[in-house]
Amino acid sequence: MRRLALLVIVATTMLLSGCWDYLELETLSFAMGAGIDAGPDDSLVLSVETLKVEGGQPTQMTPYVTKAPGLTMFNALRNLTNLTGKQMFFGHSHAVVFSEEYAKRGVGNAVGFMQRDVGIRTNTWLFVVRGASAEDVLKADAPLGTSVGHYLDRVMQVQHRNPTSIPIQIWEFNRALSEEGLRPVLPAIELVEIDDSKVPMVEGCAVFKQDKLAGWLDAKDARILSYLRSREVTGVIVTELEFKGEVKRVAAEVTWSKVKLEPKWENEEVRLDIQFNLGVDLHEIGFADFDYSQPDLKRILEEGLARQLKEDTEHLMHTLQKELESDVLGLGNLVKKKMPSHWRKLQRDWEREFSKVPVTVKVAVLMTETGTLAKPLKGRL
């Protein structure tokens, strides 16, 4: 009996030892980011940012970019493996950048491959670069000497503090493609020169119709869109106020907020009511003698900040409805959930219906804090 048990244990150990699909580290190249540019005849060029590790004290890791063409992304990835002699490992990849030209052709096939491939994480950030190639972005100078992929990941992680774009991951883009009444949007990148270096700046958004690039939103519009999609106002609001014949800037940080989007059916059409309620903390004021401790002057500040947010929201809605005609706000999705019977009548031509929806914006601002100063400093120049 003991011999039989020992034989079973030995046989089981032999079957369980080792991994059938293991990969040696020496055969892998660790990707930090990727870029996709348009090639001739509907082909593409795949660029990958990896790290070159050099010995010494301390160990030096230098980002470098390798590229290969392909008829599809999977084909380009295999061509890249043949070029480098190593298999690309995307387990540490943070970002994928599409060029403007490639995004106009349609990014659906590439994003679908990323969702399907087990080696690519679906929480990887997606971007579209404006006025440059995706390869140029990966070869740009990342602040603090990090890789571009790692830098873009950090920028997305802090967007909630002062949004200038809308962070979108692979799974979120694919969900937007499949949902009715919602168009996809991706953060936009522009290369800017800072001290003789080209740095990828994330500002604004790329707006899509289906999987094709339709246009752009600037940083101000992207900020408002972020508020409406997340139902939360964050960051800083800056406006200009006139007082005693002077015009100065005022900056306040949002401390709490409630954002409500309410679609209604009136007079045989959809209407949209947008309501902002928020509290702010005053941080900067350009006037030396503006005593914000006085109720009347405090009200002027609150009304000025509310007016700025209202104007910015109305500008965004005009851009989406009249210029881009793309419902990246997700109003159609709200109508579908709250008024399904009306949605069945509107869904066939929703883009045209969306462009005609009357929008009402209401904003209420309450200044709850003024920092450590209850009154302005006297004698300030």
Results as ranks from 00 to 15, higher is better:
378 K>I: 09
148 V>M: 03
262 E>M: 03
138 L>E: 08
251 A>R: 00
147 S>P: 01
48 V>A: 05
291 D>C: 08
99 S>F: 03
367 M>Q: 11
316 L>N: 06
80 L>N: 07
30 F>P: 00
347 Q>C: 08
183 R>V: 00
262 E>F: 03
366 L>G: 13
374 A>I: 13
241 L>R: 06
123 N>I: 14
162 N>H: 14
188 A>Y: 00
59 T>I: 15
188 A>Q: 07
189 I>D: 03
62 T>P: 02
310 K>P: 10
170 I>N: 12
327 D>R: 04
115 Q>D: 11
304 G>F: 15
333 N>E: 13
184 P>A: 10
208 F>T: 06
104 K>Q: 10
278 L>F: 07
236 V>P: 02
28 L>F: 06
17 S>N: 01
67 K>H: 14
331 L>Q: 09
138 L>S: 04
158 V>K: 11
191 L>T: 04
108 G>Q: 09
41 D>V: 02
267 N>T: 06
52 K>M: 14
377 L>I: 11
248 K>V: 05
121 R>F: 06
310 K>T: 13
144 L>A: 12
46 L>Y: 02
2 R>E: 07
268 E>D: 14
138 L>H: 04
134 A>H: 05
26 E>H: 11
118 V>Q: 07
73 M>V: 10
171 W>E: 14
75 N>R: 10
345 K>R: 14
283 H>Q: 15
3 R>L: 12
251 A>Q: 00
378 K>C: 09
305 L>W: 05
50 T>N: 09
362 K>A: 08
315 H>M: 15
250 V>C: 03
314 E>Y: 15
204 G>H: 03
204 G>A: 02
296 D>M: 12
381 L>M: 12
308 Q>L: 09
42 D>Y: 04
27 T>R: 07
343 W>P: 10
157 Q>V: 10
283 H>V: 06
9 I>N: 02
294 Q>D: 14
100 E>Q: 06
58 P>H: 02
318 H>G: 09
4 L>N: 08
160 H>W: 14
177 L>F: 12
126 L>P: 06
